[in-house]
Amino acid sequence: MVATISWKFTAREIAEKPELFTSGHRACAGCGPAIALRQIMKATRGPTIVTNATGCMEVVSTIYPYTAWKVPWIHTAFENAAANASGIEAALKAMKRKRRLKQEKVDVIAFAGDGGTFDIGIQALSGAAERGHDFLYVLYDNEAYMNTGIQRSGGTPHGASTTTSPGGTDIPGKTQMKKPIADIMVAHEIPYVATASIAYWQDLLIKARKGLEAEGPAFLHVFAPCPRGWRYDTSKTIELARLAVETCIFPLWEAIDSEYSLSPQSKIMTLKPERRKDVREYLKMQRRFGHLFKPKFEHVLTDIQKIIDKRWNKLLKKCSMT
């Protein structure tokens, strides 16, 4: 069960909390995932151990002999962040049972990107969720393998051009849809699943804390734009993270014990539909979708809108909003 207490996480409170993911890391200017990690580490409630899948955040934060982490942190491989978290949690449990653990409670967080979650890491994640380990899994989703040079993943949206799904003369970027990973995690019947965007930091922090408070596995899908991979100006990261929510391409919701509910930022789109923005506004800001604005591929824009509408309506049903 997830505690129903709500945390405020005021700006003052956040500013005063020490940085656990510190400056000096080598993330690109305008990096969305770095913002996500910094914010989430502000939501921790006590002693915490972090494990990180191979990927951008691992690479930029721990170039030996430097580290950006003020918490115990381990990286071992790409596909096994959830398995590492399982091992850490098991070790803590055993040591507590044997009275060898100094702390009363230690939280475990696993960070992984979309490649490490939608694709290569889904088996370990599914296994850890089924086994019920008490940990928070954070997916920082920048919608492609950015660390290796912008290759498509299961998290890349329909129509996006990547280096392995290029927008060519014949094929308009990725032809498949984004895998509904958070719904897949809800289907595991774990206590807490939520989506969040770095544009709404308070919502993100509250959800991260809820995930930590949940007794058992929690999954947090964080939308985190990447200026290098999406091809936009580095100053637009937060704007895009907000537009994704406002266009309903990435709605915010949470599922407590599999009960879906829309978060306020998305709920408003049902109460005041005029607030909902045209997806073209979001797409045209990013060169990864540039090819879709050529006459030949205009139909893809329509397809994208259809996909969004279909998924949005499905979500509204799950949230009993229809």
Binding site: P47, T48, I49, E58, V59, T62, I63, Y64, T67, W69, K70, V71, P72, W73, I74, H75, T76, I88, K102, Q103, V106
Partner: peptide
């Protein structure tokens, strides 16, 4: 991995 004495393991 000890919260009282944080270290980074398995770095780049």
């Amino acid at each position: 991995l000890d919260p009282d004495n944080p270290i980074t393991m398995g770095p780049l």
